[in-house]
Simulated scan of single mutants.
Amino acid sequence: MRIRPIARGDLDGLQVLAQQAGVGFTSLPDNREFLASKIELAASAFEQRTPKNNRLYFFVLEDETSGELAGCCAIEGEIGHEVPFYHYRLGTLAHSSVQLDLHRTIDTLFLSSDHTGDAEVCSLFLRPEFRGEAHKHLRNGALLSKARWLFIAQFRDQFPGKVLAEMRGVFDDNNRSPFWESLGKHFFPMDFDEADRLTGLGQKSFIGELMPKFPIYTTFMSEEARACIGQVHRHTRPALEMLKKEGLRWEGFIDIFDGGPTVEAYIDDVRAVRHSHLYDVKVSATAREESVSRWLAATTDMQHFSACWIGRAPQDDVITLSEEEAQRLGVVSGDSLRLLET
Rank of each mutant, 00 (worst) to 15 (best):
residue 13 G to M: 00
residue 313 A to E: 01
residue 24 G to N: 12
residue 280 D to H: 14
residue 7 A to L: 14
residue 114 D to W: 07
residue 68 E to N: 02
residue 123 S to E: 03
residue 342 T to V: 00
residue 105 T to K: 13
residue 293 S to I: 04
residue 219 T to G: 03
residue 43 A to W: 04
residue 40 E to P: 05
residue 147 A to T: 01
residue 61 L to M: 10
residue 182 S to H: 02
residue 303 Q to G: 05
residue 223 E to R: 12
residue 109 L to S: 14
residue 272 A to K: 09
residue 45 A to L: 14
residue 221 M to Y: 07
residue 218 T to G: 10
residue 208 G to K: 12
residue 28 L to S: 09
residue 248 L to R: 14
residue 198 L to E: 12
residue 101 D to G: 11
residue 139 R to T: 00
residue 256 I to S: 05
residue 40 E to N: 10
residue 101 D to L: 10
residue 229 I to M: 14
residue 314 P to I: 08
residue 14 L to S: 01
residue 153 A to K: 02
residue 153 A to F: 05
residue 327 Q to W: 05
residue 3 I to S: 10
residue 21 A to L: 12
residue 18 A to G: 11
residue 7 A to F: 09
residue 16 V to H: 11
residue 335 D to N: 15
residue 336 S to H: 09
residue 24 G to S: 07
residue 82 E to M: 05
residue 159 F to P: 02
residue 323 E to I: 03
residue 55 R to I: 08
residue 40 E to Y: 07
residue 327 Q to I: 03
residue 294 R to F: 00
residue 337 L to K: 10
residue 270 V to M: 15
residue 213 K to H: 11
residue 15 Q to Y: 10
residue 219 T to N: 09
residue 74 A to E: 01
residue 148 R to C: 03
residue 178 P to L: 07
residue 342 T to H: 00
residue 82 E to D: 10
residue 27 S to P: 06
residue 299 T to L: 03
residue 216 I to V: 15
residue 46 F to Y: 14
residue 254 I to D: 14
residue 308 C to H: 01
residue 254 I to S: 01
residue 331 V to A: 10
residue 81 H to A: 08
residue 197 R to V: 05
residue 264 E to W: 09
residue 272 A to W: 03
residue 1 M to I: 10
residue 341 E to D: 07
residue 305 F to A: 10
residue 14 L to N: 02
residue 221 M to Q: 04
residue 189 P to L: 01
residue 93 L to C: 01
residue 305 F to T: 09
residue 9 G to S: 11
residue 222 S to G: 10
residue 278 L to T: 11
residue 165 A to R: 01
residue 71 G to K: 03
residue 8 R to L: 02
residue 70 A to Y: 01
residue 265 A to K: 01
residue 129 E to M: 05
residue 261 P to S: 08
residue 89 R to E: 06
residue 291 S to Q: 14
residue 190 M to Q: 07
residue 17 L to G: 01
residue 117 G to S: 13
residue 49 R to N: 13
residue 183 L to H: 08
residue 61 L to W: 08
residue 125 F to R: 06
residue 248 L to G: 13
residue 340 L to P: 00
residue 107 D to F: 12
residue 39 I to L: 15
residue 85 F to T: 05
residue 297 A to C: 06
residue 286 T to K: 14
residue 312 R to Q: 08
residue 53 N to F: 14
residue 237 R to Y: 13
residue 275 H to P: 08
residue 294 R to D: 05
residue 210 L to R: 07
residue 154 Q to R: 10
